[in-house]
Design a protein around this nucleic acid. Structure first.
Length: 579
RNA sequence: CGGGGCGUAGCGCAGUUUGGUAGCGCGCACGGUUCGGGUCCGUGAGGUCGGCAGUUCGAAUCUGCCCGCCCCGACCA
């Protein structure tokens, strides 16, 4: 591709609304343009990158035995009404009416549509298994689109749906998809973790997320630096506390005046104590009940676990007024001693031998408080895992990462097929529901996720497997010698299947180098009179920061060397970065 | 939905407090200059100041309503 013919509008300054690294760089380097909140156009380079990701996904899906279909984005409401998701999705569903006033929506996901296809076309165990996938735009009216391509309202997604005769077979399909996903994410040069997820709302029985580790990620992941363990922070279980040896002579609780010191830090500073000695007491609203929840002072409550422990869907931190009503004191002075309602305590807090906690009286705390002696409570693990907790599988200290969900694999069971009456006849002639799985990959999101992991101060550094072009030729000057050398290189590389981007613009060298770094193609070849004097061109991988380390290569050998370099770059996980 | 902020040329911003001529940088066009890491000089084009209504002799600036966008939170099969 000749630069002077390409639509490749690079910018010195990023639009002010761009926050994440990927958003800034993809915009500045001319890959995407924003059309509306969470809505983007892909420019030629952006589309080529997207296509490369799609190609890898298709290759691995096909290799795993899946077949591609294309389902509509515009959907009549009847399908989602059938499963109740017309209402469940709420405002996230982008709804519209046709000219006759009929209800339609744009598809946020396609379980119903594919299940409808299955119930019409799959009748017998002989028709199973099947795995169907599609790549297309999905629409969700997100409450808050953000991070450019990371969370959009229109986005490109690959989703696959497997259909099997029973759970055992469904798990086999799931496992095949898991392996395909590992290959996909490896090939794209992503640093990611496979984390077990919460299958709650989908009614599924097994699921895992492929979390790409990036600073701007929305999810928190507890992962082990020395083994494969990783879990969503929400579902990770903290280790049981080491049993302590309680002091025999702990004095009775003593009220201390702590005027104006409500937070743990403030009281700890005031009393010269460690947060670990505190019984952090929080009032939660669970349904209509106010519950006092106690975790150790340096811990945080895991609200998902708390809700489960209390048997409700959701819990909310009580309002200040509710706290006053429940404890008789201002916020900051709640405690379990003398509290009349339900009390839940985390095992780590229960193990605190000589604790400090609120006195349920404004401006007063209690010290020398011990669970069991001074108050009673239900012991339930309700704290969040934190960095430094031991890994449950190998014991090393866990680290907390931020991640963005790049893929999600799911065994759905018969959740949709039973509701929609998608049945098959087994060998005995019995009618049974088809067992489903679903498997998504956020294709457009991965464009951004890859950039999040592969960039430096100067721009993008594409892994070779997804780069829009493999080679960036920087033509310096317009002498016949240079022009001829560039033309020769372009021709040879194209013949080798490696079409280069050729910067033939009438620009100063500095401009061309800056743009080449910004655009981020894996290899750069500089062709100028200086090198050609000795018959050489200069080759530099984008990952090499120092231009002086460019490799002088005889023009006649350049194509061969490029081919070899790229082969090295596209090896398995060759481009894997670190978080 | 709660809290905060923004909307002025293609992009980044000043001007709004205290009403009166709409400005700067980048980019763009033209001329010259320069030419291996975003040259330098000059000339020029380009703006319904988010929209509507109001106050006023006069509104980017004051008032009201509306729209859009960004950030934090809530939310996120």
């Amino acid at each position: 591709m000749r630069y002077h013919r390409a639509l490749l509008p690079t910018l010195k300054e990023a639009p002010s609304d761009a926050t994440s690294a990927s958003h800034v760089l993809l915009t500045r380097a001319g890959y995407v343009r924003r059309v509306g909140a969470g809505i983007y156009s892909f420019l030629p380079l952006g589309l080529r990158t997207l296509r490369n990701i799609e190609r890898i996904v298709r290759e691995e899906m096909d290799r795993a035995g899946a077949q591609e279909v294309l389902l509509p984005a515009l959907l009549p409401s009847e399908y989602f009404k059938e499963t109740g998701r017309w209402d469940l999705f709420g405002d996230t569903l982008l709804r519209l009416k046709d000219r006759k006033g009929g209800d339609y929506h744009l598809g946020p996901t396609h379980e119903e549509i594919i299940t409808d296809l299955a119930r019409r076309e799959i009748r017998s165990y002989r028709d199973l298994p099947k795995n169907l996938y599609q790549v297309q735009a999905k629409f969700r009216d997100e409450p808050r689109p953000r991070g450019g391509l990371l969370r959009g309202r229109e986005f490109i997604m690959k989703d696959a749906y497997s259909f099997d005769v029973d759970e055992t077979r469904a798990f086999e399909s799931y496992e095949a998809m898991r392996q395909a996903y590992v290959r996909i994410f490896d090939r794209m040069g992503l640093d990611y973790r496979l984390v077990s997820a919460d299958s709650g709302a989908m009614g599924g029985s097994k699921s895992a997320e492929f979390q790409v580790l990036v600073q701007s990620g929305e999810d928190f992941i507890a992962a082990c630096p020395s083994c494969e363990f990783a879990a969503n922070l929400e579902v990770a279980s903290p280790p049981a506390p080491a049993p302590g040896s309680p002091a025999a002579d702990l004095p009775a609780p003593e009220k201390v005046h702590t005027p104006g010191h409500g937070s743990i830090e403030a009281v700890a500073g005031f009393l010269g104590a460690s947060p670990r000695q505190f019984l952090k007491s929080l009032v939660y609203l669970a349904g209509k009940e106010l519950v006092l929840v106690i975790v150790r002072g340096d811990h945080d409550v895991n609200e998902l676990k708390l809700a489960r422990a209390l048997g409700v869907d959701e819990v909310f931190l009580a309002s200040a007024a509710d706290v006053v009503q429940a404890t008789g004191a201002q916020v900051g002075f709640a405690g379990p001693v003398g509290f009349s309602g339900r009390v839940v305590i985390d095992p780590d807090a229960a193990a605190v031998d000589d604790g400090i906690t609120g006195a349920n009286e404004t401006d007063y705390h209690l010290r020398h408080v011990r669970f069991g002696r001074d108050f009673q409570a239900e012991v339930q693990p309700v704290r969040m895992v934190m960095a430094g907790d031991p890994c449950p599988s190998c014991g090393a200290a866990l680290a907390i990462y931020r991640g963005i969900e790049g893929g999600h694999i799911f065994v759905l069971g018969t959740h949709y097929t039973a509701q929609m009456n998608a049945m098959y006849l087994d060998e005995q002639g019995n009618e049974r529901p088809i067992v489903m799985g679903c498997y998504g990959i956020g294709i457009s999101r991965l464009v951004a996720a890859i950039v999040e992991q592969h960039n430096d101060d100067n721009g993008i550094r594409w892994p070779a497997a997804v780069a829009p072009y493999p080679v960036h030729i920087v033509q310096l000057g317009t002498s016949q010698e240079v022009v001829d050398a560039v033309a020769r290189l372009e021709q040879e590389l194209t013949a080798a299947g490696l079409e280069p981007l050729v910067d033939d613009r009438d620009e100063r060298p500095g401009v061309k180098f800056k743009d080449a770094d910004l655009i981020g193609l894996p290899l750069r070849i500089t062709v100028g009179e200086r090198g050609l004097k000795d018959g050489n061109v200069e080759l530099k991988p984008r990952t090499e920061p120092n231009p002086k380390n460019a490799q002088a290569v005889p023009l006649a050998d350049a194509t061969r060397v490029v081919v070899a370099e790229l082969r090295a770059l596209t090896g398995p996980r060759a481009n894997a970065g670190s978080p």
